[in-house]
Amino acid sequence: MKPVGISVAWTEAADRQIALPTFATAGAAGADVRANLPEAASVELAPGARALIPTGLRMAIPDGFEVQVRPRSGLALKHGVTVANAPGTIDSDYRGELGVILVNLGDQPFVVTHGERIAQLVVAPVVQASFEVVADLDATDRGTGGFGSTGTS
Protein backbone atom coordinates (compact mmCIF):
# COMPACT_ATOMS: atom_id res chain seq x y z
CA MET A 1 0.00 0.00 0.00
CA LYS A 2 1.33 3.42 -0.93
CA PRO A 3 1.67 5.84 2.03
CA VAL A 4 -0.47 8.99 2.11
CA GLY A 5 1.77 12.04 2.00
CA ILE A 6 1.32 14.50 4.86
CA SER A 7 3.25 17.76 4.59
CA VAL A 8 4.42 19.15 7.94
CA ALA A 9 5.84 22.52 8.95
CA TRP A 10 7.32 23.65 12.23
CA THR A 11 5.70 26.44 14.19
CA GLU A 12 7.90 29.47 14.79
CA ALA A 13 8.59 28.52 18.44
CA ALA A 14 9.11 24.79 17.85
CA ASP A 15 12.23 22.92 18.90
CA ARG A 16 13.26 21.41 15.58
CA GLN A 17 15.36 18.75 17.32
CA ILE A 18 12.15 16.95 18.39
CA ALA A 19 11.43 13.99 16.11
CA LEU A 20 8.63 14.17 13.56
CA PRO A 21 5.77 11.67 14.03
CA THR A 22 7.19 8.17 13.62
CA PHE A 23 5.85 4.65 13.44
CA ALA A 24 7.40 2.52 16.20
CA THR A 25 7.09 -0.72 14.22
CA ALA A 26 6.49 -1.75 10.61
CA GLY A 27 2.93 -2.82 11.45
CA ALA A 28 1.99 0.22 13.55
CA ALA A 29 -1.22 2.00 12.53
CA GLY A 30 -0.41 5.13 14.52
CA ALA A 31 2.62 7.39 14.35
CA ASP A 32 3.84 8.64 17.73
CA VAL A 33 3.75 12.42 18.14
CA ARG A 34 5.79 14.22 20.78
CA ALA A 35 5.34 17.15 23.15
CA ASN A 36 7.18 20.24 21.92
CA LEU A 37 7.03 22.52 24.94
CA PRO A 38 8.21 26.14 25.03
CA GLU A 39 11.75 26.49 26.40
CA ALA A 40 11.89 22.68 26.87
CA ALA A 41 9.70 23.06 29.95
CA SER A 42 7.42 20.43 31.42
CA VAL A 43 3.72 20.42 32.26
CA GLU A 44 2.37 18.78 35.41
CA LEU A 45 -1.12 17.30 35.17
CA ALA A 46 -2.74 16.86 38.56
CA PRO A 47 -5.28 14.04 38.91
CA GLY A 48 -8.38 15.12 36.99
CA ALA A 49 -6.57 17.96 35.20
CA ARG A 50 -6.28 18.43 31.46
CA ALA A 51 -4.02 20.57 29.32
CA LEU A 52 -3.43 21.39 25.67
CA ILE A 53 0.06 20.10 24.88
CA PRO A 54 1.76 21.66 21.84
CA THR A 55 3.56 19.55 19.26
CA GLY A 56 5.26 22.33 17.32
CA LEU A 57 3.77 20.97 14.10
CA ARG A 58 1.33 22.15 11.47
CA MET A 59 0.06 19.80 8.75
CA ALA A 60 -1.37 19.81 5.26
CA ILE A 61 -3.61 16.76 5.06
CA PRO A 62 -4.82 15.77 1.59
CA ASP A 63 -8.50 16.24 0.74
CA GLY A 64 -10.48 13.09 1.48
CA PHE A 65 -8.44 12.28 4.61
CA GLU A 66 -8.30 13.20 8.28
CA VAL A 67 -5.69 12.58 10.96
CA GLN A 68 -7.07 11.04 14.13
CA VAL A 69 -5.34 11.83 17.43
CA ARG A 70 -5.50 8.78 19.68
CA PRO A 71 -4.18 7.89 23.14
CA ARG A 72 -1.01 5.88 23.71
CA SER A 73 -1.99 2.68 25.49
CA GLY A 74 1.09 2.68 27.74
CA LEU A 75 0.32 6.14 29.12
CA ALA A 76 -3.29 5.14 29.70
CA LEU A 77 -2.48 1.86 31.45
CA LYS A 78 0.52 2.96 33.52
CA HIS A 79 -0.53 6.51 34.42
CA GLY A 80 -4.21 7.00 33.54
CA VAL A 81 -3.22 9.68 31.00
CA THR A 82 -5.29 9.75 27.83
CA VAL A 83 -6.52 12.04 25.06
CA ALA A 84 -9.57 13.90 26.36
CA ASN A 85 -11.50 13.98 23.08
CA ALA A 86 -10.33 10.64 21.70
CA PRO A 87 -10.20 10.28 18.89
CA GLY A 88 -9.57 13.90 18.06
CA THR A 89 -9.88 14.84 14.40
CA ILE A 90 -7.59 17.08 12.40
CA ASP A 91 -9.49 18.17 9.29
CA SER A 92 -7.84 18.46 5.89
CA ASP A 93 -8.42 22.22 5.76
CA TYR A 94 -6.89 23.02 9.19
CA ARG A 95 -3.44 24.64 9.07
CA GLY A 96 -2.89 25.65 12.70
CA GLU A 97 -0.65 23.96 15.25
CA LEU A 98 -1.48 20.42 16.26
CA GLY A 99 -2.19 20.38 19.98
CA VAL A 100 -3.09 17.30 22.01
CA ILE A 101 -5.60 17.61 24.87
CA LEU A 102 -4.29 15.29 27.57
CA VAL A 103 -6.25 14.44 30.71
CA ASN A 104 -4.96 12.69 33.81
CA LEU A 105 -7.54 10.13 34.94
CA GLY A 106 -5.02 8.58 37.33
CA ASP A 107 -4.64 9.16 41.06
CA GLN A 108 -1.11 10.64 40.91
CA PRO A 109 0.26 13.78 39.24
CA PHE A 110 1.82 13.15 35.84
CA VAL A 111 4.58 15.27 34.32
CA VAL A 112 4.61 15.71 30.54
CA THR A 113 8.21 16.29 29.47
CA HIS A 114 9.60 18.00 26.39
CA GLY A 115 10.04 15.45 23.59
CA GLU A 116 7.89 12.78 25.26
CA ARG A 117 5.59 10.67 23.07
CA ILE A 118 2.10 11.83 24.05
CA ALA A 119 -0.33 10.48 21.44
CA GLN A 120 -0.49 8.65 18.15
CA LEU A 121 -1.71 9.90 14.79
CA VAL A 122 -3.75 7.68 12.48
CA VAL A 123 -4.45 8.80 8.91
CA ALA A 124 -7.93 7.76 7.78
CA PRO A 125 -10.12 8.29 4.71
CA VAL A 126 -13.19 10.47 5.10
CA VAL A 127 -16.56 10.12 3.41
CA GLN A 128 -18.83 13.13 3.67
CA ALA A 129 -22.53 12.33 3.87
CA SER A 130 -25.50 14.25 2.61
CA PHE A 131 -28.38 14.54 5.06
CA GLU A 132 -31.98 14.46 3.89
CA VAL A 133 -35.13 14.81 5.95
CA VAL A 134 -37.68 12.03 5.24
CA ALA A 135 -41.15 11.31 6.61
CA ASP A 136 -40.11 7.98 8.16
CA LEU A 137 -37.19 5.59 8.35
CA ASP A 138 -37.04 1.99 7.16
CA ALA A 139 -37.81 -0.65 9.81
CA THR A 140 -35.14 -2.92 11.34
CA ASP A 141 -35.23 -5.80 13.83
CA ARG A 142 -33.63 -3.56 16.46
CA GLY A 143 -35.92 -0.61 15.86
CA THR A 144 -35.57 2.15 18.46
CA GLY A 145 -33.77 -0.01 21.05
CA GLY A 146 -30.90 2.02 22.41
CA PHE A 147 -28.30 1.70 25.14
CA GLY A 148 -28.14 -1.88 26.43
CA SER A 149 -31.03 -3.03 24.26
CA THR A 150 -29.03 -5.88 22.69
CA GLY A 151 -28.04 -7.40 26.04
CA THR A 152 -25.19 -7.11 28.50
CA SER A 153 -23.06 -10.11 27.58
Rank of each mutant, 00 (worst) to 15 (best):
D32F: 06
R95A: 07
Q108Y: 04
V127I: 10
P125A: 10
D107L: 10
D32P: 09
V100D: 07
D141A: 15
H79W: 02
G74E: 10
G56I: 05
D91A: 13
A9W: 06
V33P: 13
L77M: 12
A84Y: 04
R16A: 07
A84K: 08
S42L: 04
A31K: 09
S73P: 00
A26E: 15
L77H: 13
G146W: 04
A19Q: 13
E97C: 06
V126W: 00
A9H: 12
G151S: 08
V4C: 06
N36Q: 09
A40I: 02
Q108P: 09
P71F: 03
M1N: 11
D15W: 09
E39Y: 03
A84C: 05
G48D: 06
Q17L: 06
V122S: 05
T144Y: 01
V69H: 09
V123L: 02
Q68W: 05
A60V: 11
G151L: 02
Q128R: 15
Q108F: 03
G143N: 11
E66C: 13
V126C: 02
D136Y: 03
G30Q: 07
P109K: 10
A119Q: 04
S7R: 14
V100F: 03
A26W: 04
A24I: 07
Q68N: 10
P3I: 06
I18W: 03
R72E: 01
G151H: 10
G146Q: 07
G99M: 10
D141C: 03
D107C: 06
P109M: 09
V122M: 06
H79C: 12
G146A: 07
A135R: 13
A139H: 07
I90D: 01
T152R: 14
G56S: 07
R70E: 07
G143E: 07
V67A: 12
R50S: 15
G56P: 05
T22D: 02
D15L: 13
P87E: 05
S153W: 02
Q17W: 00
G99P: 00
D136A: 15
A124Y: 01
G80T: 11
E132R: 14
V83C: 01
I101F: 08
I18C: 11
M1P: 13
A60P: 00
A29V: 11
A51C: 14
H79V: 04
K2L: 06
S7Q: 14
R142T: 12
A60W: 00
A119V: 04
V33M: 09
D91H: 13
V112M: 05
N104P: 08
N104W: 05
A86Y: 00
L137K: 12
Q128I: 10
N36R: 08
Q68M: 04
T152Y: 12
S7M: 08
V43N: 03
W10R: 14
